[in-house]
Design a protein around this nucleic acid. Sequence first.
DNA 1: GCGAAAGTGAATACCGCATTCACTCAACCT
DNA 2: AGGTTGAGTGAATGCGGTATTCACTTTCGC
Lengths: 136, 136
Amino acid sequence: MGARQGSSERLPDNYQLIYDVIREAGAGVHLTTNDLYLRASSRRPGIGISTVYRGVQRLRDLGLIDEILLPGADSAVYEPTASPHAHFRCTKCGSLSDVAYELPQRTITELSKRTGAHISEATVTLHGLCQGCCAA
Amino acid sequence: MGARQGSSERLPDNYQLIYDVIREAGAGVHLTTNDLYLRASSRRPGIGISTVYRGVQRLRDLGLIDEILLPGADSAVYEPTASPHAHFRCTKCGSLSDVAYELPQRTITELSKRTGAHISEATVTLHGLCQGCCAA
DNA sequence: GCGAAAGTGAATACCGCATTCACTCAACCT
DNA sequence: AGGTTGAGTGAATGCGGTATTCACTTTCGC
């Protein structure tokens, strides 16, 4: 996989570093800004937290990463861009995982009709006990 | 707190006041903690913001009100307890409204099976342009 | 009444995120 | 080359929402 995206513009080194960290963590791994800061710091000591914030904004705007905002979460998490999916959070251990589910387009169309709004995005978040916490 | 029986327990006056404010606002009206503080203050000057926070926590624990946490929202909003429903937020004007939709139990059951988790709650949040902002 | 427990309000702390500011540095242009 | 410009940077600061602490008051069980 190419280290940089095929655009003509090059990412600033720090932003590229943040992107690398997110991509190397892999799909389904959700990193907070602080996680990113810690990991980036170990590779490039002295990097500022502001730069991390600016970096994720830029990467999000470029569509390179997904910013995931969860209801009630204290902070946003980031993961490499993926197809739309739901998220599950364990109320006990706090773990967050992807769930391959998307609200059917038919449902969204129907809700748009019923509300008179133009629905462009639907986020689904599930809560409960994860498999591990269920067993325990 | 003494061992009082749940259903017959009397609410502290301040919490009752907060509950009244929420109920009087009515279903579908979403009040932030600050909204509640302002409205409660006009009836009972001197009430502290801490009391409002403690009040909504208590009312939420008692199941008297719903605490609605929206992805990316700056603050929680509260409304009288209602049957589960989705929320729609206009990305332009910020208005928030209830949408009579609930993830089908069948879907939740299936997702539980697939993930091995005990899903106890599903929140659905829709984003887009509300009817008014569509027209404009 | 009396003592314990619950409630209260002000102040403070905390956390995530936004903004500001001075500084560096590389690109660009005669 | 020199000079200008603009993006990028890191530290500091600000801010809003919420949690916590603390001393005080009220309420409740007896």
